[in-house]
Structures are given as structure tokens and as C-alpha cells.
Amino acid sequence: MKQLLQKLTETFSPSGYEAAIREVIRAEVEPLADEIRVDALGNLIVRKGPSTGSEQAKKIMVAAHMDEIGLIASHIDENGFIRFTTIGGVYPQMLMGARVRFYNGIPGILYTEPLDAPTDTPSIEKMFIDVGAKSRADCPIKIGEVAAFERPFLDLGDRLVAKSMDDRIGCLVAIEALRALKSTPNEVYFVFTTQEEVGTRGAETSAFGLDPDLGFSLDVTGWGDTPGRKHFDIALGKGPAIKIKDGGMLSDPRIIQWMVKTAEANGIPYQREVLLGGTTDARAMQLVRAGVPVGCISIPCRYVHSPSEMVDYNDVQNAVKLTVALLENSVEL
């Protein structure tokens, strides 16, 4: 599982350019799937279970987004330096001195024009990427090419660290749940979605196409257990979190109940999540067509949207268990 996570997190696929990660995931899930396809926005849709269910069988969508935050080149100056803008929530304080890798494999480093005071936070407008080019003509990057953080996976035992843990950890949970899900009476669609970081766009279109009866997302949430963080009840190692609310969505109370009961019946630890900012694919799923009852299983993750996002391995394993337990039996909301 850790090896697969390493492979997933060391793949570069910013929003809108998910082909690389999609191929890594496809290779894993193809032997496990009853049906697999890619839609117009690049979502990878994987069915497990009967395609035309009986009356009791529910069509369930499980979404994990495979894109990651990144950068996109907006100008190559006459000396070969690359100006850029951000894809998704990239903060400048995370970028100073960082290394990135472009989609075509070219590495680059980030720095800034001189600041008024060395302690100031640089603005994205003042920053540039240096790929070692000496002139515009010499620069291997063109306007519109995308890059993501370059940072190797780190195994600290229980704690695992990587870039793009958001949301490759959700992808891992989905893949492992699919592997462990021997059979299901439900028509389950694992959707590895695109463009979540720019506004849950892949989930919106794939949910429209699938028209599920219910669904949930698998995504990371914030944390409250490092110095100075207060009044947020989520800690690493205390189990996956069942989302009640986030910045964009209120989970369906019936889905919360279903998750809580399933976790308790199977002795799986869980936390209750009320997140103030941010949202997940579930928001888009909820409002599609005539509406979908949705929820979210969150994997607590420290330092979200930094190049070193940290999760707890036990939480990951429990998230897999909970996902499987939810899907292996008929669902009655």
C-alpha cells in the first residue's frame, strides 16, 4: 500500500492535466473493475458490481480527486525566466526556494524579485521559475505549460509525508477499497475525478453522467493537533473523519447516520468533522440534477497544500475498512 502511495504521490498531474496520474490509477484498477471508462473532462470512471441493479441495489458514486494544485507558465521573459500563475490554492510562502517539475519532466526552482524587507512574503506576481535557461529562445517551457511540487515520498512509520497527499490518499483509499471489495449488491462507481482543486468540476460532470442515488467523496481534511491550532476537533491517528459540514456543504444527515452506524458496527474508529473552510467533490455531487444525498469520508491531513502533507497510516487503513463496510451491503437510508 505504501509503495502504491509513493507511486501515486510522485506522479505530476495538476488540475486539467490528469492523464499521467490517470494512467497510473488505470493500471491498478483495470483488473479489479467490471467496467472502466474516461469521460469528456478526463474523469476515470470505474464500476464494481451489477450494472443494472435490482430494486434494492443503489447506484453509489465514490469520488476521489486525482488532480493536484500546481503552477502554469504565463510568460517567458527575455532572459529565460518563467512567470507563472497558480492552479488551485497555492500559497506564495510555500513556494520560496521550492522545486517544481513541469508536466514534460523539466525541473525548475522558484525565487522572487527582491522584497522590501527580507521577512516579507513574496507575491506570486514577483516570483519566477528558473529552469536553467539563458534566454527566451533557450527556455524549454512555453506559455500554458503546467508544473507541480517536486518532493519525494517520505515513510516515517505510522506517519506518511508527500506532496499531493491531497488527494492521492483518497485515490489510494478508493483503489484499496476496490481491491478489498470482493462483491457488492450495489452498483458502485469509483470516480477518480479531475479539476477538484479549481472548483470540483470533474465531480460535477461525472455525477451528472452517472446520476447516482447517493454518494460520498474521499478527501483530506484539516487538522487541529499541531502547535497553535485551536478548536478544531481533528487529530491524526484517531480515525477517518465523517464530515458533517465544511465551507461549501452540509452532509446529508442520512448519510452521516449511515457512516456512523457502519463505523460503530464494525469497530472502526472515527472522528466527527465540522470544517470551517474548503469543500470537496461531494458539494458538486449534491446539487447535480434533482439532487443527490452525499457525505464525505475525510482523511485527516496536516499541512494541506504544502509540499509536505502528512497523514497517519492507521487512519488510511481505517478509511479503507469503512469504505468497504459501507459498500459491501445493501444500503437503506
Binding site: 469521460d39 469528456a40 502554469i72 500563475t85 506559455i143 500554458g144 460532470t205 451528472f208 453522467g209
Partner: peptide, 23 residues
């Protein structure tokens, strides 16, 4: 020319998210 990547937007923002997605 390529418009510089950045803010702003066009009707494409609504069109590509229609139904099951539109290239």
C-alpha cells in the same frame, strides 16, 4: 497568441461543465 493564464473568464466556464462535460 496564447492569452496569459490567469484570472477572468468566458462563457466557456459554464459550457464545459454542462451535463457530462463538454470539451
Amino acid at each position: 497568441q496564447f492569452r496569459q493564464p490567469g484570472g477572468g473568464g468566458t462563457d466557456a466556464g459554464a459550457i464545459h461543465r454542462s451535463r457530462s462535460g463538454v470539451p
